[in-house]
Write a protein that binds this DNA or RNA. Structure first.
Length: 434
RNA sequence: UCCUCAGUAGCUCAACGGUAGAGCAUUCGGCUGUUAACCGAAGGGUUGUAGGUUCGAAUCCUACCUGAGGAGCCA
C-alpha cells in the first residue's frame, strides 16, 4: 500500500493509502470514533466504525492516547464536515508506540502558560500554532536565500569563533578553549563580510549570532539568526534599495505559499498585502521631530526606544526606513555623511504595527586613516583589526550592507507577540533548556 | 543591573483571615457524525521555600527562589 503525506491527500482520493503519524486528537462515541492524525505535513481526520473493522483494531483506536504514533490505512475522500475538507475511512491501523496513560502527553489542547510551554518546547512544537509559525520561518529563510541567490550574491559564511568584537566587548560570550588568545562567539559576521565582498563583489552570510545582553523583552534572544548581505562599490542608497526589494520579495513569498499557516495564526493578511515598494524614507532628524510632536521625551542624539519605534511606524502601512543617525550612537565603522560629518550613513528599517527594528545597516568607512582614528576613539585593540584594515590598504572601495534578524522578521510577518516562538529552541537570559 | 506583576491538583484558574474548589487531562461507564465533542462517576493537594503575626494563614508581614512583562542595550 502506498504511503503518502497528508499534504498529498488531495491527489490520492479513493485510492488505498497509508498515513504515518501521531494522534493529534480523538473524539469518540460508542461505536464510531474520529482519530485526528498529524504527520508533520498536515492533520487528517479519520473515521473508524466499529462494525466495519476487526474488533482489536477498533478497540486500539478507540482507546488510543494523545500523541501515540500510529499507521492508518484506508481511502481518503472529500468531506465537508471534516476540518481540512478531507477524511480517511479507516480500513486498518497499527499502533507504533502507545503513550502510557499513567504519564499522558502533557500538552493538552486547552490553554497553557508560557513557563510550562517553554519547559516542554520539545513537544510544544508539535502543536498546530507553533507548527504554523515554524513553517513560516522556513518560508522566510528560503525566500531570503532565493532572493540573494538570484540577484548575484554569493553565500560566504563567516566564523562563529571570533577574536574580537564587531561593536564593543560588553555583549560578547567568551569561549575558554583556545590556548593562544581569547575567543568570543560572533555577534555579527559583518567584518568578515567586508572581506568576502572585496573578493566576490556581492555576498551574504546566514547564521547564528550571539549577544550577551541582559535583555528581558519580547524582542530579544541571546542566540538568534541573522542574514547579512554586503556589497562592494555600494552606498547607503543601495542598501535601502536592496533591503526594500528583499522584504517585498519575502512577504510576497509568504503570502503566496503560507496562506494556510497565516490563517491558523489569524494574521490579518491585509496588513501584509500593503507591503510594496517604495517604503517611506525619513531622516533621523525628522524622526526625532515627529516623535517629540507625538509626545515622546526623546532628545536629539538619543536612540529610539521600543515605544518610539511604535510611534514612528504607526503612520505607515509598510516598513519605514530611518537614516542618518548621530555617529555617537552607531558602531565605529559607519561612514560619516559628507554634508554633516556628525551623522552616520546608517539606516534602520522599522516594521509596521509596532514590531520595531528588523534591519540595521549602512555604508562602511573605506578610508584607512579615518577607520584607524575611529578604532582609537572607541578604545578597540588595534592589533585585532589589522586584517580588517588591510581591506582599506588593498583596493578599498565604498561598500555597504545590512543585517536582518530572522526571528524579528518572522514575528512581524506572523503577527505574534513574542519572538521566542519563532525559533524551534529559543535561548534566553534565564532559559537554556530544552 | 533596575522597576512592576505572578507562583494553589499533571495543566488553566477560583477561593482573599474561619472545613482547599471547578474545568481540562487520567481511569471507569454511556453514546454511529464528533468539531478544544457531550453526559455520569472516581482518583488526584506539605497552596514556591524559610521564618514571623494570629485562637486560626493559600490569604497579612519579611527574606529568599522561580517565572513573566518592561527599562537600559540591540537585530
Amino acid at each position: 500500500m502506498k504511503r503518502i503525506t497528508i499534504a498529498q491527500a488531495a491527489q490520492h482520493l479513493g485510492e488505498p493509502v497509508e498515513l504515518a503519524g501521531w494522534l493529534y486528537n480523538l473524539r469518540r462515541s460508542g461505536k464510531i470514533c474520529f482519530p485526528q492524525v498529524r504527520d508533520g505535513s498536515g492533520i487528517m481526520q479519520c473515521v473508524a466504525v466499529k462494525n466495519q473493522l476487526p474488533e482489536p483494531v477498533f478497540e486500539a483506536l478507540k482507546n488510543l492516547t494523545q500523541e501515540s504514533s500510529l499507521l492508518v490505512r484506508g481511502k481518503i475522500r472529500a468531506e465537508a464536515r471534516a476540518p481540512g475538507g478531507f477524511e480517511m475511512d479507516v480500513e486498518d491501523a497499527e499502533v507504533v508506540q502507545r503513550v502510557d496513560e499513567s504519564a499522558p502527553y502533557p500538552i493538552s489542547l486547552k490553554e497553557h502558560g508560557p513557563d510550562f510551554l517553554l519547559d516542554h518546547r520539545h513537544l510544544w512544537i508539535r502543536s498546530r500554532r507553533q507548527h504554523a509559525i515554524l513553517r513560516v520561518r522556513h518560508e522566510v529563510i528560503k525566500a531570503v536565500r532565493d532572493y540573494f541567490d538570484s540577484n548575484g550574491f554569493i553565500l560566504a559564511d563567516t566564523p562563529i569563533f571570533t577574536p574580537a568584537a564587531c561593536e564593543g566587548t560588553t555583549t560578547l560570550f567568551e569561549v575558554n578553549y583556545f590556548d593562544d588568545e581569547k575567543v568570543y562567539l560572533t555577534q555579527s559576521g559583518q567584518l568578515y563580510n567586508e572581506a568576502t565582498a572585496a573578493a566576490f563583489g556581492k555576498v551574504y552570510t546566514f547564521g547564528p549570532t550571539f549577544r550577551a545582553e541582559k535583555s528581558k523583552t519580547r524582542r530579544h534572544l541571546t542566540e538568534f539568526w541573522m542574514v547579512e548581505p554586503e556589497m562592494a562599490y555600494a552606498t547607503l542608497e543601495d542598501v535601502k534599495h536592496v533591503a526594500e526589494e528583499m522584504i517585498c520579495f519575502v512577504v510576497g513569498r509568504v503570502l503566496e505559499h503560507r496562506q494556510a499557516e497565516l490563517a491558523v495564526l489569524e494574521r490579518d493578511i491585509s496588513k501584509l498585502e500593503t507591503v510594496k515598494a517604495p517604503f517611506p524614507r525619513i531622516s533621523y532628524d525628522d524622526a526625532v521631530e515627529t516623535l517629540r510632536k507625538k509626545g515622546s521625551g526623546i532628545e536629539w542624539g538619543g536612540d529610539f526606544g521600543g515605544a518610539d519605534e511604535t510611534l514612528l511606524s504607526e503612520d505607515y502601512d509598510r516598513p519605514v526606513m530611518v537614516d542618518r543617525y548621530p555617529s555617537q550612537i552607531k558602531a565605529f565603522y559607519f561612514e560619516p555623511d559628507p554634508q554633516r560629518p556628525e551623522l552616520a550613513l546608517g539606516v534602520d528599517v522599522l516594521a509596521p504595527q509596532g514590531y520595531g527594528e528588523i534591519i540595521g545597516g549602512g555604508q562602511r568607512i573605506h578610508d584607512l586613516k579615518l577607520l584607524e582614528q575611529r578604532i582609537r576613539e572607541h578604545n578597540l585593540p588595534p592589533e585585532a583589526f589589522n586584517w580588517y584594515l588591510d581591506l582599506r590598504r588593498f583596493g578599498s572601495v565604498p561598500h555597504a550592507g545590512f543585517g536582518m534578524g530572522i526571528e524579528r522578521c518572522v514575528t512581524w510577518i506572523t503577527g505574534i507577540d513574542h519572538l521566542r516562538e519563532t525559533i524551534p529552541f529559543p535561548r534566553m537570559l534565564y532559559r537554556t533548556r530544552p
